[in-house]
Write a protein that binds this DNA or RNA. Structure first.
Lengths: 199, 199
DNA sequence: ACCTGAACACCGTTCAAGT
DNA sequence: ACCTGAACACCGTTCAAGT
């Protein structure tokens, strides 16, 4: 039988494994539970092995944030397409957004909680992923405008307003500041957005 | 001349001084800059002196959060009263809210960033202060309803929706995700809220 | 009652060394 | 190229001891 697995190196893609493990740790115990030692041990690797793939811990956090924006964008896209776009697709996007935040509260906080403020965490790659997720919303609005179903206001401003509303709802929901499944306020927000972008 | 000041104890109210110093440290370097050692040294006191007044660090953070909700509530009240209430008062409250977040971004993050999730930071006193700040908005809406200037929808739901919108704008603004002073989106949000609560 | 100083168990990070 | 192990400078917290 083989000694333990392989010998020379422990992972085909340690970099990827580190990010995945970090996301899992954060999901389980929050961002403060993320420890280089813990994730290293979990992966059967030295606690300093990470430094061969990331400059420091905040870079790992940035990678976690990037991954978050990527899956968020995917969820938004799926929601939009499943309804075949349209007003209904837009509402589905909003619901998918809030659901993502509720499914991964700690991960969501890493994306928006300011952990990624200083140091190397503020990397252009992260900002690009965030912008790409935002772009999904802008594209949806442009599509609606081309169909002639909503106002021709600057789509960027509309998108910013909608994003802020949904982001605020998601944040308060995560913080537990909203009683019930918060459906009432979601309905209200949807109605406000709908009439706000109507022709 | 006196030796150094007093002798027996270093502060008339060390508890208060600790919170104030903690807020200043956070304001300057973010929540991660808050170190019991640093704040102790700044106050000319041992790094363990804090444990005579707080059970642990997260309790100090909770006190910082409480203080934040208190001054936020004060600002909202002032904004409302200066305009003598009314629709204009409500909009002034929104502006004051966003301004508070922009003036104290790190402090604001402590209040909403999930640092206060586990442990003793989740204290009832903090939740009461948060609820009191929220209550300011509810009272304003009730006042408008009594004047007969807005709809008679459940004021709590209206307040939640407005809070979420403004909170989302404040968060995105702090994160630097909004170009310009974000006046465009604020105007849009105000318009949406105004027509949303109109008779 | 209030504070100190040493000690403990934990961090992230550096660096010479190993394969 | 990739990883290790010891070392370093930092944390929060405990506890016996001082006034």
């Amino acid at each position: 039988m083989p000694p333990k697995r392989r010998r020379s190196y422990h992972h085909g893609d340690l970099s990827r494994a580190l990010v995945t493990e970090a996301i899992g740790t954060i999901q389980r115990g929050g961002a403060q539970a993320l420890t280089l030692r813990a994730v290293g041990e979990k992966l059967g690797v030295s606690r300093t092995a990470l430094y061969r793939h990331f400059p420091d811990k905040s870079a790992l956090l940035a990678a976690v944030g990037r991954e978050g924006f990527r899956t968020l964008r995917d969820r938004l896209r799926h929601a939009w397409r499943r309804r075949g776009g349209g007003q209904s697709g837009l509402e589905a996007m909003g619901a998918a957004y809030v659901q993502f935040a509720l499914d991964h509260p700690s991960h969501y906080r890493v994306m928006f909680g300011g952990h990624l403020a200083g140091k190397s965490a503020r990397d252009p790659e992260l900002e690009r992923e965030g912008a790409a997720a935002f772009e999904t919303l802008v594209e949806a609005l442009v599509s609606l405008q081309q169909q002639g179903t909503i106002r021709l206001d600057p789509p960027l401003r509309l998108a910013q307003y909608i994003w802020a509303s949904v982001h605020g709802i998601a944040m308060l929901a995560i913080d537990g500041q909203l009683r019930e499944p918060a459906q009432g306020i979601v309905d209200l927000a949807n109605e406000r957005i709908r009439t706000g972008i109507a022709l």
